[in-house]
Amino acid sequence: MGKWIRRIIILASLIMLIPNIFSFFSELGSDIPKHIRDEVESGNAIVYDVNEEVIVDQDTINFKHVVRTEDETMVIYEVHKHEPGWSFPTGALELKDEDGNDYSIQGGGSAGKPWGSIITMGYEPLPENVESIILDFNWYDRSFQLEVSLIGEGNSHG
């Protein structure tokens, strides 16, 4: 009797944890969308790895990449949520260059994950001479600035 109770518990728990297990393994793959990887391969996009972590309240924002193309500048980041609730205010994250020019958001998307979401935001394209950008977050009394250097050829991988 006890044997079956514990086995049913194990099985039921595993079923409930399927999304977590699945996302754990899919994490090991690339976090750059396929169509951008294609662009990179054909030489139309440059990927810069960021790998910077910022804490906003109890959540962790993981900036992964900045992708630069002729049409847009993509900022790819993960929002690791400590608890479920409102989604990250993507509109409060502005993209600026060293001279203070603003590049507005053209579009974006987010993919939900058991731990939060992966966000891909597209901003206006950067002029060629811009070598460093500032990700500027302002939301009520919360704020952070993250400088990202865009010097060099970036990373060819996807």
């Binding site: 518990i9 409930m16 944890l17 608890e83 479920p84 609730g85 009520y140």
Partner: peptide
């Protein structure tokens, strides 16, 4: 069971007291 409870969005999102729901709403809204 520990992981199921810990990761349950159900148990993390719904509260027995309204004030807890209010506080969580503000917290996750930054």
């Amino acid at each position: 069971i520990f992981f199921v409870v810990k990761d349950s969005s159900y148990l993390n999102y719904y509260h027995l007291s309204p004030i807890k729901a209010h506080e969580q709403s503000e917290r996750t809204f930054y």
